[in-house]
Design a protein around this nucleic acid. Structure first.
Lengths: 306, 306
DNA sequence: TTAGTGCACAACTTTCGGTTGTGTGACTTC
DNA sequence: GAAGTCACACAACCGAAAGTTGTGCACTAA
């Protein structure tokens, strides 16, 4: 591809060869090989060089795009000036929406999103510089953040009840937390020891709910499948989580009140991380997070909500 | 890249090797080579397979994107079901805007844009199936389109005068064609025998203008440079052509009236071209081209304007 | 015609990617 | 806790690409 583009840009095989520091014959072979693989002629050879055929013209923008993508791929792991690397706790959470907004506001900042497993790995990754920032609930009780890690509240993810059409609460416009007592709530894939587990432990302890956090996570498809089919089961899901599910399946989102459980995400970063995008992200969050109202919502008392 | 993604998707080298129909050792070598080239570790090897490192997670979406782009690149020259291939007479013309609109309206239709040189090559390319459609002024006088080529008016590109800040007409809010008589108008790069040349020949003949179409085309940068610096020179430019030029250069766009010269683009295609995107494009044009008002505009009498 | 330019073909060489064979560490099983 | 299994890495070897040198041919320009 690089050779193809070089020939296009220089207009002849010889110059392209010089640019690529190979012989003209090597360029000739490369182009011939590419043309053979694609089974089309890309250049018309003239006595003064090479000109693109129609197929070559159609191919060219794709070739350039490929080189751009390849460059970005390398840049994504290049130590030094690599893209801003942000960890989110789950895809399709409210944090994703926030990051999409950030990307729209600052398209010039290259961004990579990763998902780590627990707060310990995350903190280690932030300290080592492997990631630049993380959206997490801080902090797990009894384990304060290290001195060199800063954090600030970013957003509250409002949790809703998700039921199948045959569930007892399926018709309700909203339910109170007290009404949930006695109903089975199923949250598979919650790993013990993580902040999610601590969150739901506290929710159970405070309101006497029945949350089954056991069992492996077979993916959201399997979860939704079960919820839709099982009248006795419900689950919690973020208000902004987008379900990729046919509407006909009859799944219901039901707001929870008195109080509304929210999962507070904070941004974590290392105090002396010099990445320029990090300062921009913090400024964006500070601007987006004005008017944080915790009235009527619930979160464990160990999390930071400022 | 393909191997990297295969390992990610299967979770282990062995399965990826089976999927790719090579040995486990080959996969091991490929990943080791990639890691060496990138100078980062992409996987943590465990006893049960391979898991992505943070660098690997950041790299993954770029790798997937690369494979998608590569696939599109191959598809762009694949005989059979390749993208709709449309020829436009020049980039940055009004036709580009039209095609952008079409792409927004029908993002599912893959599109490749090429630029051919003259109407003869274009007609040959349409007949051979090398391109599916072309935006051109039809037809060059005395040379009717072949039987199997259809055409329909698509849009009128309104021409404006472009001058430097020191030009005699630079301050005018608009000029009539009659006022242009005596001023030098420079249109470099017009190839004799093309429809552009025929268009300007007619314009000169009808209104007694002085158009210098001689000289090679050194690119729009050189053209704009000269126009900006030379008080005695002006040029014609499409109303919707976007100039990539600092505003401080003082270039002026001046509407031309009595009449307004327009360059009419028609869509040309082969009657029996079965590409499904072609029908969609024609329908889009038919919908977009309602209310075609030729009053007050001028075009050579040999072009088709319906 | 003749000199010059630019790409293709052929023969040779080297490099790289693949296979086979084996080793090692980690988890599982009894 | 010893044996077995699983999964990946290393080493040696082999063949196919991809590179280089040398040359030929087509076209252009003087």
């Amino acid at each position: 591809m690089r050779t193809f583009v070089a020939v296009v840009d220089t207009g002849q095989f010889q110059e392209a060869a010089a640019e690529l520091a190979v012989t003209q014959q090597a360029v000739s072979k490369r182009i011939a090989g590419l043309e053979k693989d694609l089974a089309v002629r890309l250049f018309t050879r003239t006595a003064r060089g090479a000109r693109l055929t129609i197929d070559g013209q159609a191919f060219l923008p794709h070739a350039r795009e490929l080189l751009r993508v390849a460059e970005r791929a390398v840049a994504s792991v290049l130590p030094g000036s690599r893209p801003l690397r942000v960890d989110v706790i789950a895809s399709r959470s409210a944090v994703s929406g926030l990051m999409r907004g950030f990307h729209r506001a600052h398209p010039e900042i290259e961004l990579d999103v990763v998902m780590l497993f627990d707060i310990e790995t995350t903190v280690a990754a932030i300290r080592s510089g492997a990631i630049d920032a993380s959206f997490r609930a801080v902090a797990v009780p009894g384990r304060p953040l290290p001195e060199d890690i800063e954090s600030v509240w970013a957003l509250d993810e409002v949790l809703q009840l998700l039921t199948g059409p045959a569930h007892a609460l399926a018709g309700a416009r909203s339910v109170t937390v007290a009404q949930l007592a006695g109903h089975r709530i199923w949250m598979p894939g919650i790993v013990p020891g993580t902040e999610w587990a601590a969150y739901y432990d506290d929710l159970v302890a405070e309101f006497g709910l029945t949350i089954e956090a056991t069992g492996p996570n077979f993916g959201s498809d399997a979860l939704l499948d079960t919820i839709a089919d099982t009248p006795a089961l419900a689950t919690f899901m973020g208000e902004q989580t987008r379900l990729i599910w046919p509407a006909g399946y009859g799944l219901r989102r039901i707001p929870v009140t008195d109080p509304t459980p929210v999962y507070p995400h904070s941004l974590l970063w290392r105090r002396d991380n010099p990445h320029p995008g990090l300062a921009t992200l913090r400024a964006y969050l500070a601007a987006a997070a004005t008017g944080h109202d915790t009235a009527g919502t619930w979160a464990p008392d160990w999390v930071i909500r400022r």
